[in-house]
Simulated scan of single mutants.
Amino acid sequence: MNKKQFVIMLSGFVGPLSGNAVLALLPTLSEVFHVSATTILISIPVFMLPFAAIQIFSGALSDINRRGAFFFGFSSYSIGAIICAFSTNFELFLSGRFVQGIGFAFVNPVITAILGDIVPTKSRGSAMGVLGASTTAGIALGPLVAGTVAIIDWRLAFFIFASLGIVVIVLFSISFAGFEFKGSFALKDVGKKLLETAKNRNVEYLMLCGFITFFSYIGAISFISAELSSLGFTDASIGVIISSAGIAGIISSPIAGRIADFLGRRAAAVIGYSIVAITLFILSISDRNIFELDIVLFFILGIGTAHIWSSLLTLSVEVIPEMRGTSTSLFNSARFFGYASAPLFLSPIFEKFGMSTVALVASLSAIFSGLVVVFLVRESKTEKNK
């Protein structure tokens, strides 16, 4: 991995690190802002909804100016984290989360597109596997970081997120100094190119799979956090359980990427969906009051999602090679709408039927997404032959 690839992987980790860090801070933030733990969960979709929505356009804009999109994105992300750190009420905290979501919406499509630009086809699956694992690790390790530093002060977590955003900007400036990013079309053509890309069947199916995958994954970790909190688990314990998925992703990502390169993108995705579906089903029938079992199940869940993202991310930059930023923006927008939607749509199910039903719904969703990959998604013949 060269320094350019390292900066892209680090960027993929830092953005979502803050996304669900609040999962390990539920008891603390609930006490500080005088609201329920369920209400605190609203801060996840407040971060993710603008993140998902703005990506519809930000990816296309990144096809015009990748460097500008990157700098604007992480600058906004860091400012939002600082607002959260200085929040004196829940409304101000939510506004900071909203600004963070807007910022990272400009980063996520461009880092995927850049990786597709600088990595050859034969090893692109491996590279995308690491990027997918970086994103998953950020999602999973965020609660561990937040839960650990909360022992000192919860605000410190957001100061750390802001600092990391600034560090990434500096590293990007150094690593890509003199590197020429070529725009694929003019600003006036953004709308036209978006519509053309959105009508591509492969892009549509990938968007559906991305949405369902994150919907299932975030549904599982969001409500297991709420349940464990009600069972008396500490912030640190919850953080350890959830972060085990990210650790598994980091460990298994090189293997997942190589499988995607060797067996093909779709085959690797099916392996991942099978692992995720089975693990979520076991979670639905297991005793979640057993700390060690929870860690094992989330570790396996992380292995499955690493296989899925390595495949889908690679497909997203290959289906329309000349429009990488636009196609990845639509794919990422859809998958993070799934991220943002999970707490909203699954909350009524959790409150009425409990965590077992949420896990079962997530398992069935993973099975459906796997079937979409098998029967509908097609790999690019042009990219295969490169």
Rank of each mutant, 00 (worst) to 15 (best):
L29N: 12
H34L: 12
G249C: 03
N20D: 10
I259V: 14
I54E: 09
S333H: 02
L115K: 05
G232M: 00
L344Y: 06
I152M: 15
S365F: 07
Q100E: 15
H307M: 12
V145F: 04
L115T: 09
T305D: 10
K386A: 12
A113V: 10
K4T: 03
D294K: 12
I241K: 00
A186E: 13
F331Y: 06
L364C: 15
E351G: 00
G249A: 01
F215R: 00
A69W: 04
I367W: 11
A133W: 04
A220M: 14
S286N: 00
V270R: 00
S216G: 13
S30C: 03
I64C: 09
G132S: 03
V372C: 00
N289I: 05
R335G: 08
I42A: 07
S134I: 01
A21R: 05
F353N: 06
F215T: 05
L206H: 11
G264R: 02
A105M: 14
S18L: 11
I152C: 12
A133Y: 08
G264T: 04
G246E: 01
V32N: 07
I82G: 12
A53R: 05
I295C: 13
V107F: 08
Q100D: 14
I251R: 13
G15W: 02
F6T: 06
Y77A: 05
F86H: 08
S327F: 00
S244I: 09
F159L: 15
P27K: 02
I82R: 06
F13L: 14
F106K: 05
S175L: 09
E196H: 05
G232V: 02
I224W: 02
G165H: 11
L376W: 06
S347Y: 07
G125V: 02
P16Q: 08
A162Q: 01
A140L: 03
L360M: 15
E31T: 05
I42K: 10
F71N: 11
P45Q: 07
A245N: 09
I285Q: 10
F159T: 14
A226Y: 14
Y273H: 10
T88W: 09
K122L: 15
I44D: 09
K122H: 15
F345H: 01
V317Y: 12
N200W: 02
R288H: 10
I56N: 10
S286M: 08
T135L: 10
A21S: 14
L263T: 07
G73W: 05
C209Y: 02
D294L: 15
T121H: 13
L144G: 07
F176A: 04
R335S: 11
G232C: 02
G96I: 14
A37T: 11
S284N: 01
S341W: 03
V372Y: 00
I56A: 10
